[in-house]
Amino acid sequence: MKALRFAALGDSLTEGIGDPVDGGLRGWAALLAAGLALPEEPVEFRNFAVSGAQTADVRRRQLPGALAFGPDVVSVVVGVNDTLRRTFDIHAVAAHLDAVYGAFAERGAVVLTACLPDPGAMLGLPGALARPLARRQHAVNSVVHALSKRHGAVHLHAADGDWVADRAMWSVDRLHPGERGHRLFAARFHTLLAASGMPRGPAPDVEPERPAPSRSAGFWWLATAGTGWVARRCTDLLPQLVALAADEVRHGLRGTSARLDLRASAGVAAALSALTASPDVSRATS
């Protein structure tokens, strides 16, 4: 009996950070894999995701192995780490994602994609610091929306909604879902696949097996692993983020903040137009 093959590509979200189990990490993709199994059709699941991965890493390091695996279903959820780097380039993000989505779509795989919340809001950064990150994440989400449509992907709108504001959905680091969030993420993808007509098993249970992290656990994370995480990101991003925040303040004082949004939208449109795409792709940026 041929097993359904499911490959998961991406970063720490798909690797399973925030959903530890005995012996390692689980995460939403593993939960979804269990929900795709039918009595007469088991699922062979392989997780290629790596913490810290950017879109370039997915294309260059994860894509070859995943293609060799030959998946029937593949998830590609990535992009937040790109926004947290001084080298952020929406043109490069669009080119990498187009290549990855296209490689699987051409082979007839069902491609799963998602737009994600912006990290500045999740971390509770001050407005002048958060808005540049939000603008970057919106640009990535716009590209993901457009290219998902182009390649016929099953797309999950996860950038906003009640689940983003619900602290019970998130782990102590405020950036990764906790067990409840991973379960909801998997269940929402399961619902989309069911609506598309794909045969599937029972939906993943959305109720967690373990208690949510306590407030003291959050402080402990920040004092230990969290400090290192922030330091690594700040070394790369902070000088540029400060400059972006200063630019944000200047435009705010002049009443010209809308120009920053228009500039970002123009960048998305240019990035999509640069791809070898159908004429309507560059307009599908919402």
Rank of each mutant, 00 (worst) to 15 (best):
P208H: 08
R5K: 15
G252Y: 07
F6G: 02
L237M: 10
L237P: 01
L275W: 02
F189A: 08
L63M: 15
A94K: 04
H190C: 07
R180Y: 05
S282R: 13
R131T: 13
P199E: 05
A165E: 05
G252V: 11
P279S: 12
R254Q: 12
R150C: 10
G252K: 08
F219V: 14
W163Q: 10
A277H: 05
A128Y: 05
G124L: 11
H157L: 15
S196M: 09
A231K: 10
V73N: 00
S216I: 13
F185M: 07
N141R: 09
S171C: 12
A37W: 01
G181N: 12
S282L: 04
R26N: 03
A99V: 05
T113V: 10
T83Y: 01
D166F: 10
L116A: 09
A139E: 04
V143K: 05
P208D: 05
Q54N: 09
C115W: 00
M198T: 12
A187N: 12
E40L: 09
L237Q: 02
L97Q: 05
L156G: 10
D162N: 03
V140C: 14
V172W: 04
L275N: 03
S216L: 15
A3N: 11
V154S: 05
A203T: 01
L175I: 15
G201N: 03
D72H: 15
R85C: 02
P132D: 08
A231L: 14
S51G: 15
A195S: 07
A139V: 02
A3L: 12
R215S: 07
S12D: 00
S286R: 13
H190T: 12
H151S: 07
E15T: 06
T87S: 15
L244Q: 14
L97P: 00
V100E: 01
L4D: 01
D118A: 13
S257D: 06
L97R: 06
L125C: 04
A114V: 02
G10P: 03
E15Y: 07
D247C: 08
A92N: 00
